[in-house]
Design a protein around this nucleic acid. Sequence first.
DNA 1: CCAAATTGTTTTAAGCCTAAAATGTTTCCC
DNA 2: GGGAAACATTTTAGGCTTAAAACAATTTGG
Lengths: 172, 172
Amino acid sequence: MPAESERTEMLDSETKAVETPEDHADELRLWLRLLTCTTLIEGEVRGRLRQRFDVTLPRFDLMAQLDKAPDGMTLSDVSKRMMVSNGNVTGLVERLVESGHLDRRTSETDRRVQVIRLTKLGRAEFRKMAAEHEIWIADLFADLSPKDVRELMRLLAKTKASAQKSAARRRP
Amino acid sequence: MPAESERTEMLDSETKAVETPEDHADELRLWLRLLTCTTLIEGEVRGRLRQRFDVTLPRFDLMAQLDKAPDGMTLSDVSKRMMVSNGNVTGLVERLVESGHLDRRTSETDRRVQVIRLTKLGRAEFRKMAAEHEIWIADLFADLSPKDVRELMRLLAKTKASAQKSAARRRP
DNA sequence: CCAAATTGTTTTAAGCCTAAAATGTTTCCC
DNA sequence: GGGAAACATTTTAGGCTTAAAACAATTTGG
């Protein structure tokens, strides 16, 4: 009679005080695997963007956000969407304005706010890159069946929700 | 009669020249979700490490590698395991030697090679951090059932293999 | 109205990270 | 043995990233 109890209350007597350190090895392994996958794919995409278009991944990501927002976005919005710090966006935008890919203007109605959008050049270049990028991604995931993809989507949605909940517990 | 053909050869006549751009939106969404999960969890872990132990995530990761190798590792080994550039490891190690967490020596048998290992201090501090870290991870994944965890492990293994294959196709 | 709180952005200081070139060492193989 | 190739690491130059502090503008509540 094995005493296996996965993720349930402990059943032995005097249970409250026992404080058995639970086994979290599986979750740890899962996290490392998740990280490996992301690092692997991200590195591959980074390299291809550099070789093929001489552009960095963060610049591409920022342009991708703006491509979805024809009327532009504020720096804060971009920062939240990209999940990076405000200061990070400031520098990134500076360089992309410099290179002629972005247009930046102060909001008429709130002078704190900077609104940025893709220039014509920026949009054209992004579209070209995005078309190839999509193919790279498809190739990187090529061995997953449509069912695998659906299932992964579902489980990652659950993962995201779980992590957000955990983060919120700490930072209410 | 829907013309849906998921991930199969195209069946229309004159097929070779047609070059229909396939739809890769699902894979793209999957990649973005994967990236979101990783960024979310990584950011959370980074913040907790900083607040709780005043240590950076890369330092923690490097120590984690060394903790598994009591006899030490070469810089190349570390670099491969962590999937970061060589130069990156050089700097990271410099700072950790400086702070007394790492010991570095030139190999007796091959003077090109630097072997690094945790010092007593480094190991002790790492163990303390790792214990809490494991709990954080478990909490971040807390809403996944054991079955979810197994299933995610399986699908991510498949993903990793697929991505590696794709990367190898490009860089033979 | 106006001080305090909030919000949006930039600045700062430090560290992380990469790709590519440079340096030093060993191995290969003729 | 000796030159070429391979290997391990460091250096370089530039960019990315963060947390925290500083600054600026707006909103809020007495």
